[in-house]
Simulated scan of single mutants.
Amino acid sequence: MRLPRDAWMQRAGVHQERADALTAAHRERAARGEKHPVWDFLFTYYGYKPALLRRWHPGSGIVLEDAPERAGWRWYTPAGLGDAVMPDPEAFRTEKPQLAGLVERMLRRTASRPGQFGCFGLHEWAMVYREAEHRHPAPLRLGQAGTDAVVEAHELRCTHFDAFRFFTPDAVPRNRLSPTRDSQPDLEQPGCLHAGMDLYRWAVKLGPLIPGELLLDAFELARDIRLLDMEAAPYDLSEWGVQPVRIETPEGKAEYVRRQRGFAERGAVMRERMLAAWLGH
């Protein structure tokens, strides 16, 4: 596909407006020096600044006509006569072979597995289990003893290394698995909230090979999942307008699983879109 300059410039402009709307509240807080215990995560944990979201790309193999300003952009290559260019997946794979292999494995293997829906978001509870000092600034809504009791009444089933690595020492042996960085491609599964949020990470890593619209879709998915992650967490976030999903109750568990399944379905579609945009299949 070839896009005339007017067409791709229009798409880039629409993309920038959407990106600005998605990051407006964060940028306003940052300008005032304010922190937010829920939404800052999308920018601090992943480490991607709002400006990155504004840059639109067409996706792998899509030719931008009359685009001399992009001739020197990373992983772009000339595409025929004039100043036409396109994102080149082979340039990415040549420069970043290990990353390319990792991202493809993570997307394909996660997509190939059934979702697991019995964790109930207890990873956040395991991060404060029997611990006097907590990384999160908000107080525990059940107190320390009540929080510990919830952990002890359940089996921990976390499959995601980047959550498991923050478990307290007493929580680690309570988990059914012992995820490691090396085992991540073998354990990641589509029911995991963090696996869904990480689709934003993979979209960023693929850079111009992923259409800008898909990047923002991945950011929106990460944003929506982050809210449930904190609603189901043990913290009292009422000061920030966050109402708890009380996963210590049958009703809370049912709500969590219902929404978790919805995110898994959205994530499955997004993995297919990423692979199709990047590799063409």
Rank of each mutant, 00 (worst) to 15 (best):
T44G: 13
F167W: 05
A67N: 02
V242P: 03
R11A: 12
G252S: 01
P58C: 05
G61Q: 04
R258V: 15
R258E: 14
R130F: 10
Q10N: 12
Q260P: 00
S112N: 08
R18F: 04
A91W: 13
P58Q: 05
A138E: 11
P185R: 02
E248Q: 02
M1I: 14
G146M: 02
P50V: 04
L228F: 01
G13R: 10
P208Q: 02
Y48P: 02
P37M: 08
P185F: 02
M86W: 11
L142W: 11
A149W: 03
L53C: 12
M197N: 06
V257I: 07
G80K: 02
G241K: 06
R201F: 14
R135I: 15
G262C: 10
W240V: 05
T44S: 13
M230E: 03
T168M: 07
G47Y: 01
W125T: 09
L237T: 00
R266Y: 08
S60P: 10
K96E: 15
G33S: 00
G196A: 09
R273D: 11
E133Q: 15
W240G: 03
Y48D: 10
D217C: 03
V85I: 02
D224P: 03
P4F: 01
E95F: 05
T44E: 11
D6H: 14
H36A: 10
W73N: 08
A203E: 06
A138G: 00
R2Y: 07
E272M: 14
R141C: 07
Q243W: 14
H36S: 01
D162S: 13
R273V: 08
A7M: 06
L42Q: 07
E220R: 08
A71I: 02
V257P: 00
V245A: 09
L81E: 15
R157T: 12
R18N: 05
P89N: 03
K35T: 15
D66W: 04
P137N: 00
L122I: 04
F43I: 05
A268N: 04
G82H: 07
D217N: 11
S178W: 09
E95R: 13
R201Y: 12
G146Y: 10
R181D: 12
F41Q: 04
R54W: 01
P114Q: 13
L3T: 08
T147W: 11
H36T: 14
A25W: 10
F43G: 06
F166K: 11
A276W: 08
M86Q: 14
V38E: 02
P97R: 11
L275F: 05
A254T: 03
D83F: 14
A153Q: 08
F164S: 07
W202Q: 04
E251S: 10
R135G: 15
P190E: 01
V172A: 10
Y48L: 13
A203I: 12
F166Q: 13
Q243H: 14
E34Q: 06
H136E: 02
G241L: 08
A7S: 10
D66F: 05
G80Q: 03
Q243F: 15
R11D: 10
K49T: 14
L187R: 08
P137Y: 00
G61I: 01
L81K: 15
F120D: 07
R181N: 13
A19F: 02
D66V: 05
L237P: 00
R176S: 13
A30G: 05
M9Q: 13
E69I: 12
D40K: 10
R70Q: 15
W202N: 08
L193M: 09
E34K: 06
E213G: 06
V128N: 07
